[in-house]
């Protein structure tokens, strides 16, 4: 069977899956902040990156996700990274250097690239774990919950949330449409794979037009269905799904808060475990 790309919601019943979406969203943001914290030495920076990677391994294990899937998600980044490395080597001329075939390569250039790479991978991993363990709909609810204060300045948060959840709901439907139209156009002789740029653009247009028509038709039908079932965007509604913050969430929250404040303190006070001996 084809392995699903990581990041798609997996329907398992694990500790991570059961956590409150609001907490998971917050935790992801805190982890990302840690990724961008500055510590007094590179050794400290990479120590923390190591700790974060450890967390990622543990999360993957708990959520029954495969490390291989994560690697697959990173794969497309290689090209960019090599490009970045070359640019860095050419541009960065500070600190010590070593010579490769009498061409100076500065350590700073290598470290710069490594920093960007590691940070990107970490961010990607955390967000993928979040989306793999949280239903899109729950994420929408979480977002709505956090944005709720904005209603005070008349931002229609619940409408935005409804729009997002409808968009999520219709992604698979529109994908099916795309597939169908592609086959229909291919059977009429449109070639999506070969040909010059101009022909390719033409082929894409032959796909986009029917896709737009169908999307508009669908949304107009949907609007009718919603209206008849009593939906009023500005009206009051009760809620079927209510999120509950449980003990599980509380303990996880305390743990993450501890980790975060520890990292923040070390960063602000500039404490270096290695006393400046390393890097």
């Amino acid at each position: 069977m084809k392995e699903l790309p990581i990041g798609r919601y997996t329907n398992y019943d694990t500790f991570l899956h059961r956590l409150d979406a609001r907490f998971k969203l917050l935790a992801m943001i805190l982890f990302m902040v840690i990724v961008f914290l500055h510590f007094p030495s590179r050794a400290m920076d990479f120590t923390f990156y190591g700790i974060l990677f450890l967390f990622i391994f543990i999360f993957l294990k708990i959520a029954k996700l495969r490390f291989r899937q994560l690697l697959r998600a990173i794969k497309p980044m290689w090209f960019m990274m090599v490009f970045l490395l070359i640019i860095n080597i050419l541009v960065v001329h500070t600190g010590d250097a070593f010579y490769l075939f009498s061409f100076p390569i500065y350590y700073d250039a290598l470290f710069n690239t490594a920093y960007i790479f590691v940070r990107l991978v970490l961010m990607l991993a955390f967000s993928l774990i979040l989306t793999a363990t949280t239903k899109p709909m729950d994420l929408t609810y979480a977002l709505e919950w956090y944005l709720h204060p904005l209603t005070w300045i008349k931002v229609p948060v619940h409408i935005i949330a409804m729009v997002i959840s409808l968009a999520l709901r219709f992604i698979p439907t529109l994908m099916e449409d795309t597939d169908r139209f592609m086959k229909a156009q291919a059977s009429r002789g449109v070639d999506f794979e070969n040909g010059k740029l101009k022909e390719k653009v033409k082929a894409i247009i032959s796909l986009i037009i029917p896709l737009c028509t169908s999307a508009i038709q669908r949304s107009s039908d949907l609007a009718d269905a919603m209206e008849v079932r009593g939906y009023d965007p500005n009206g009051k509604r009760t809620r079927y799904r209510i999120m509950k913050f449980t003990h599980r969430d509380l303990f996880s929250f305390l743990f993450i808060a501890l980790l975060f404040s520890g990292a923040l303190t070390l960063s602000i006070l500039g404490i270096d475990f290695y006393m400046g001996i390393l890097l």
């Binding site: 239903k135 899109p136 709909m137 959840s165 409808l166 999520l168 709901r169 439907t173 038709q217 669908r218 039908d221 949907l222 269905a225 919603m226 079932r229 009593g230 939906y231 009023d232 009206g235 009051k236 509604r237 009760t238 809620r239 079927y240 799904r241 209510i242």
Partner: peptide, 26 residues
């Protein structure tokens, strides 16, 4: 069209959609 009138993300959410609009208590 069965697809164009399915509003909720899952079966239970879709059945509940109208109830939410009618202010049925949670």
């Amino acid at each position: 069209n069965p697809d164009n009138q399915f509003i909720g993300a899952t079966v239970r959410d879709d059945i509940a959609f109208g109830l939410e609009n009618r202010l049925i208590p949670h």
